[in-house]
Design a protein around this nucleic acid. Structure first.
Lengths: 233, 233
DNA sequence: TTCGATAAGTGGCTTGGCGCACATACATCG
DNA sequence: CGATGTATGTGCGCCAAGCCACTTATCGAA
């Protein structure tokens, strides 16, 4: 890690919101870490050694269920941080942190962040705010899983991913999506087919292109707006 | 509020875990508050003025969905606290806090707790630990809603309620349960009928009696154990 | 250019749970 | 002791989505 004189603010919004002095104090503890598609940053049950602040790229928080079924409960882009359990003083992860979209993150030793967090500073405030947004997101996922159709949930998921990525195209097989949504691959095929037929997206062999955001927003359930509003307020 | 010399520890586990000196400092700020069945402590969208530490009784955290559908995302007994948003510095509640089982709570002004929370003390640690348990509970609810049958979810719900109540009998109509589980009243009728036929519970006109916990545990999904283990570790 | 592997489309059958529409119970209170 | 409201049981049709079993596409390496 090089600590140069010139401080480049991070594109991670939690870090960017810190006053310069505080950010500067943290900087030596932050290390750039590449997020490669498909990487598992930590497995459910693992000890969390690092906490990740994405600058770009996306980390999915996945709950693992008995029969090797998987369900995404949260999605973390540059608005957040992965590994909150460690911040809260719990060193064992309850979910899997999976890189869903490649990019880079700044990471910090969990022990260091925890110590830093206890100070009553801007970082604490920032992280508390984020914890609340995460709680909202997970609660809303619970509701969404209960009440909404696969079509609507797929649209929501694509929007949330689109928000966290610079491009209109991203890498996603139906198989992968089926794990995120907790449905069968065939179910994704049908739902994605419907969205494509309406001209909202285009996809082939593991790549999806967003063509019409408005359309997706109309097809999605209101959960999208609820979560979004909470995380940007 | 009387601050006598003799300090009676609270039966709320978060408060009971505090060292005497810290608890004593908080005591003047805590006020006893009756929890009456059906009371709404705060509505979704309301400003949270108080944070509630149940001593007995249960508070349900409910998400409200567009079409006046309701779903419980969390359940708070004497192991926790209702109104965490306020602790995190967000004064607007994202859910409804409903008294699901009568009892008493100690309550504290949200502003006071927030100030107290910022100190790096035992309370902060306690609350962080609890936040993690709550995150686990909500995540697991999301999974449970997605994958498990009404029967299993009802069994889980009864177990979680039973854990937080002193008695084997509690007050619950099928109508009420249908809101907790986010299913139709008829669905509850069927599921409850099945549990009764197996001799696990007995119920009539708004009252349920737990007859066989073991049986319920067998009928429930594993989500019960996962949540329980996390909240008692 | 062929072949295996990965990704996606389709169809038939089953089922859990929804919506609706009643039929009973109790239970309490004039 | 009926009357009225609240709590519960049930049946029927419907649909989203699950399970199973295939058939195409398309890509990349041999």
């Amino acid at each position: 890690m090089s600590t140069t004189k010139r401080v480049v603010p991070s594109t991670n919004r939690l870090l960017a919101a810190l006053p310069k002095t505080e950010y500067q104090r943290l900087l030596p503890q932050l290390e750039t870490f590449p997020l490669a598609f498909g990487d598992v940053l930590y497995e459910a049950g693992d000890t969390i050694n690092y906490v990740y602040f994405p600058e770009d790229g996306i980390i999915s928080l996945l709950s693992i269920v008995e029969s090797r079924k998987v369900l995404e409960v949260g999605i973390v882009g540059n608005e957040g941080v992965a590994g909150v359990a460690a911040i809260l003083g719990v060193r064992v992860s309850l979910n899997r942190g999976l890189v869903q979209s490649a990019g880079t993150a700044l990471r910090m030793k969990a022990t260091v962040l925890q110590r830093e967090f206890k100070r009553d500073g801007a970082l604490q405030k920032s992280l508390h705010r984020y914890l609340h947004a995460l709680l909202t997101q997970i609660s809303q996922s619970a509701v969404c899983n209960r009440f909404h159709t696969v079509d609507a949930r797929l649209a929501r998921w694509l929007l949330m991913t689109h928000d966290r990525v610079n491009s209109d195209e991203f890498r996603l097989t139906q198989e992968f999506l089926s794990h995120m949504l907790g449905v069968r691959r065939e179910g994704v095929s049908k739902a994605a087919g419907a969205l494509q037929k309406q001209g909202f997206i285009n996809y082939s062999r593991g790549y999806i292109t967003v063509l019409d955001r408005r359309g997706l927003e109309a097809a999605s359930c209101k959960c999208y707006r609820i979560i979004k509003d909470e995380s940007t307020t």
